[in-house]
Each structure stands twice: as structure tokens, then as C-alpha cells.
């Protein structure tokens, strides 16, 4: 697994192992914010950026602090700052890193690019509770990626998520004109359409595989 190159992981994360269509992460904002293409693009860019950065930071935190010294030696990594094993705290540390990072980005963007702030403003706080971000960090640990692979995976997952939500937004704009059976209006038809998109993405399955 460790010899898979970062590029392969990137492509796989976008197409074959799309974080939304195969791992179901980030569904809440996917359903809530896929009404218009413009919002979908803004949210997609914000998620991609935060995902890439937080996987990198969480990688450093996990292998630099949380992991125990023996396990690091076993994996052939440099000794962590703290020798005790506190990996059971990884959930709370990851989410704190993500929340802090999102807050930081928000302040930074507000200060240096007010236009971008108004374009992305409302989406940034939403990202903290987007499960794709936390999920990517957890997958990174479970699959044992190295640093380059983690960043590739984070970026690919973000692009894949953005791709899915933009596709969905386009379809939903078209669907406004169709006559959908009463009980299916809103979320149910969105789910059925996502089902079809997911089936289409299964067509990529033979290309690259990661696990």
C-alpha cells in the first residue's frame, strides 16, 4: 500500500473512490447547498482547500505527537514528541485542529480578501461540521498513508467532492422544470439522482484502485 504514488491516490480519490459517492461523506452540505451551481462552486473550492490543509496538519499531529514511541519505531518513523500513546484522543484532536484551522482561514480571508470573504463567508463555518473533512483525516490514519499520499488524498477527496456537488447542482437546476411525483420532491429525488451519478462513477472502477 505504501508504495502507491501520490498521483495515483489523487486520481483514485477523485474518480474511483470519490469521498461522497462511495464513502458518503459530506452528505449534509451536499444536500443542503446543491441548489445553485455558483454556491456549489464556492463551497467546493473552500472544502478542497480546507481538506488539503487539514489532512497535512493532522498527519503531522498524529505522527508527531499522538502516536506512541514504540509504534513509531515499528513503522520506521521518527520518534514523536510525546512518547506515550494517546491515539485514543485522535478524534477530539482532529476536530479541534479542523475547527481552529477553519477559524484561522476565516479571519485571514476576511482581513486580506474581503471579496473572497463575501463569496465564501457563509460556507466557511459550515465546513467545520462537514464530515468529509474529519473523515479524510480518519481514512488517512486507517489506510496508513505517508505524507505525500495524505496530501494527495486530501486534495483528491476535495476535488472529488467539489465535482460531485457541482454535477448535482447542475442536475438540480434542470430538475426545477420537471414534474416530480409529490412525495419525491426535494431530498428523495436528490438521493435517487445521486444514486444514478454514483452508478455512473462506478464505471471508473477498473481504472485505479486504492484501499
Amino acid at each position: 500500500m505504501t508504495e502507491t504514488s501520490a498521483i495515483v491516490i489523487l486520481i483514485a480519490a477523485i474518480l474511483t473512490n470519490n469521498i461522497l459517492l462511495t464513502n458518503f461523506l459530506g452528505m449534509c452540505s451536499f444536500v443542503a447547498c446543491s441548489g445553485q451551481i455558483r454556491t456549489a462552486v464556492g463551497l467546493g473550492i473552500a472544502v478542497t482547500f480546507v481538506l488539503t490543509m487539514t489532512t497535512a496538519i493532522n498527519y503531522a499531529v498524529y505522527y508527531g505527537i499522538l502516536i506512541s514511541a514504540e509504534e513509531a519505531a515499528e513503522l520506521g518513523r521518527a520518534a514523536p514528541l510525546l512518547s506515550t500513546d494517546i491515539t485514543h484522543l485522535s478524534f477530539i484532536v482532529f476536530i479541534a485542529v479542523i475547527a481552529a484551522f477553519v477559524q484561522l482561514v476565516e479571519m485571514f480571508v476576511e482581513r486580506f480578501s474581503p471579496r473572497l470573504y463575501f463569496a465564501l463567508g457563509i460556507f466557511l463555518p459550515l465546513i467545520t461540521v462537514n464530515c468529509a473533512i474529519l473523515g479524510a483525516s480518519l481514512f488517512m490514519v486507517i489506510r496508513g498513508y505517508n505524507f505525500a499520499q495524505s496530501v494527495g488524498f486530501g486534495f483528491g477527496a476535495g476535488v472529488g467532492w467539489a465535482l460531485a456537488i457541482i454535477l448535482m447542482a447542475g442536475l438540480r437546476q434542470k430538475m426545477n422544470y420537471s414534474n416530480i411525483p409529490e412525495p419525491f420532491r426535494g431530498v428523495p429525488i436528490a438521493m435517487i439522482v445521486t444514486c444514478v451519478i454514483a452508478m455512473a462513477f462506478m464505471g471508473f472502477a477498473g481504472m485505479v484502485a486504492i484501499q
Binding site: 458518503f24 438521493m191 435517487i192 454514483a198
Partner: peptide, 17 residues
């Protein structure tokens, strides 16, 4: 994956109905 989306869509539609 597609089955999951499909099943949830149907369940929510039934609830709505």
C-alpha cells in the same frame, strides 16, 4: 453505494407520503 442512495431516497419519500 448506489443502493444506499436509492434506499434512503425511497424511505424518505415513503415518510413524506
Amino acid at each position: 453505494a448506489p443502493g444506499a442512495f436509492f434506499a434512503l431516497g425511497i424511505v424518505i419519500a415513503i415518510f413524506n407520503a
